[in-house]
Every structure is written in structure tokens, then in C-alpha cells.
Amino acid sequence: MADSTETLLETPLAALHRELGGRMVPFAGYAMPVQYPAGILTEHLQCRETAALFDVSHMGQAELVGEGAAAALERVTPADVQILKPGRQKYGLLTMADGGILDDFMVANLGDRLFLVVNASRKHVDLPYIESVLPAGVTLKPLPDRALIALQGPQAVASIATLAPGIAELGFMGVGSFNIAGVPVLVSRSGYTGEDGVEISVPADLAEGFARTLLALPGVHPAGLGARDSLRLEAGLCLYGNDIDETTSPVEAALTWTLGKRRRTEWNFPGAERVREELANGTKRLRVGIKPDGRQPARGHTPIHAPGGAAIGEITSGGFGPSLNGPMAMGYVARDHAADGTALDLMVRGKAIPARVAPMPFVPHRYAR
């Protein structure tokens, strides 16, 4: 049983969450809103139909400053960071010597520095790991005095562009500095929902007023961790600690698209030996999308069997998709059971639920292209 005396950290928006009726739960060491009075289903659908505001201030933000910062970061990731032009951002993986995934992260080129966002549950591991490989002249600066707000949904960009028209000019994965309602912010056109939208880094002391300004925009509603999870699962996006971790490789996780083309010729990143071998000869298991037959969802850690047969894997994330209007899951299965359409049995409380391997995303992405 967890120690109930553990002191949870709070984000700069904690008082606002409580004022809005947010139900606070422990997440990655923070008290975070899992939902508001409207409920997870409504919040999920509002994000798909209009715009939802998420507090993601628990994430770790940092800057990498100095000549050769991009090359230095490549010492811990297979991503091609040096190819990133100013005003652009990309998704990458931090890998370990044995090929496992230490974390996933976002990196943006701000011209004179790199801007990093890492997971809340991993920032205490990630930042020292990055720092450990830095040459003289390159410095990692954590930014604990910044909040992070995600505004997601088909109306998100149009709404915020009424306050800063230049945001509408950003392409997908574009980044820029803006002044919104007197607040200097860093905006990236990205997110974790499969919808168009932005993530906004804002000074912590101005975050609550800034969030209130966004919530006053037409069509914008607050949303919590529950909707964020069902949205990202419908979008087929990994959650660190569930779908990827130190035991999974980029190849097993079906994240080979994050490996830079140049990096695949240099093979000079942590875990390159394992990644190269798995690309050449295949892996024993693969991350796949799974659709259960019927309406019953299967949750994380549900064993996956061949129909009427032996165990071949495990679900890592599962639930009900409000937009999909049905259950969905992702997990790892033995490679010879990974093809789309392959029949599976999901062992829910000892009973076999028929399912099949399904392509992801379960709900099409609607990023700005």
C-alpha cells in the first residue's frame, strides 16, 4: 500500500483546478485533475469537437545552451537533432547502452538554444543523464519556473489566434515566441491527443491568469488526465511507463521512425548495437494496436493468448474509446502474431475475450499539415 503521508507536488494551476471542481489524484508525484464535473467522456468529446485545455506543468522543461548543443544531445538519442531548423520541433527517444528506452521527449530548436520537454515521472533521471554527456561549453538549464499548458482540438488554434494571429501561421511541429494578453510565451503546434492544437510554455507566476484568459475563449473547456489518456490511446500514442520503458527497444515499440537517417549510418548512439541487430533480424515481440470484439475493454497487464492457446504477450494500455465508440488497447505480442487482423484471446478475469490486431491510430490524426 502506498504511503498516504507522501507529500504531492502541485502545479501553478492547482488552485484553479480545485475552483473548477477538478477531482485531484496523485500522478507522477503531483496532485493532478483526473476530471472535472463534466466528466471524462464529455471532456474527451469536447477536445474532438471544439477545444480542451490541459495542465501539463508537471512535465520537465529545460534548455540546452552552447556551441554544439545539438551534437551533444545526439550522444543520448538516435534522433537527428542537428537537422532540426530554427523554429522546428521533433519527437525523440532517450536510449540506454542496452537499447532500452530511458524516456521519450520533445526537442525544439529556438535558434540560440534547444528547448526540451521530458516526462514528469522521468525528469529526475533524464536531466542528469543528458548532463553526464555534455562537453565543455554546453549547459543544461532546468526551467522549474515554467508552467506548460496544452490547448487541443479543432477550434484550439483559431481560438488562441484571436489573441496572437501569428500562431495560425505555425505549421505542425512549428515553434515560436509570442506575447499573449501581456504574457511572453513559447508556443509549439503539437500535442498528445491526435488533434490539431498547441502546447504553451508560460512563466509559472503568470500561468493561472493566462489559463483563465484561454478558458474565457469560445469553445474552450478544461480537461483532465482521464480524457488525456483516452485521447492519446485513440491516437495510438505511447505512454512512458506503460507502453515503453527501460525494457523496450525503439524497434520493438514500433518507433523506428524516430531514428534519424544519418544516425542509422553512424550507429553512434546508446543501444545502437541492439537496434541495428533488431532492424536487420527482427524482434521477438512488437507493439501493436488491438481491438477487442464486443464492448468490454481490457486494461493494462491483461495477458494475450493465441486463440485457445498459449500466452503470446500482454496489454500495456487499454480502455474505452469515446470517439471510437468501442474498446481499444495496445500491447506487445510475439512477432508472428503481430500482423493486422490476427486473431487473439484477451484473458480478462480468466475469461477469453476474442480480439484482433488492428492498425493504429484507432481514430485518424487531424494535425495541421
Rank of each mutant, 00 (worst) to 15 (best):
H17K: 12
E6C: 03
F178G: 12
A52P: 02
F178A: 09
G39W: 07
A120E: 01
T265V: 09
L225C: 04
I353G: 03
P361F: 11
R23Q: 11
V118P: 00
P203I: 02
R88E: 12
P78S: 11
A216Y: 02
S177M: 02
P322D: 05
S188N: 13
G308F: 10
L279Y: 04
E43M: 08
G300A: 15
P135L: 03
V118C: 03
A161H: 11
L20T: 01
F172L: 10
D80K: 12
S132Q: 08
L13M: 07
N179V: 13
V133I: 10
R287E: 11
P33F: 06
S177P: 00
A51L: 03
R232H: 08
G99Y: 09
L170N: 15
L225Q: 13
A272Y: 12
G308L: 09
L225V: 05
T11E: 04
A227Q: 07
P303E: 14
G111S: 01
L73K: 00
K123M: 15
A334Y: 07
F115H: 02
A355V: 01
R369K: 08
M96N: 11
G326P: 02
A108Q: 03
I315Y: 09
F54D: 08
R366Q: 12
A15N: 04
V34P: 04
E266T: 15
R88T: 05
T7R: 15
G241P: 09
V118Y: 00
A254G: 15
L255V: 03
R48A: 02
S4H: 06
V357F: 12
D112Y: 05
V25W: 03
E314K: 15
G319E: 06
R189M: 14
F210L: 04
S249K: 10
A158R: 12
G92S: 13
I353R: 14
A235D: 09
Y240C: 00
L186T: 14
H337A: 14
M328E: 04
V107C: 12
T42F: 07
R232G: 11
S177L: 01
L45C: 04
P154N: 07
G191D: 05
L324V: 01
T258N: 08
D293S: 05
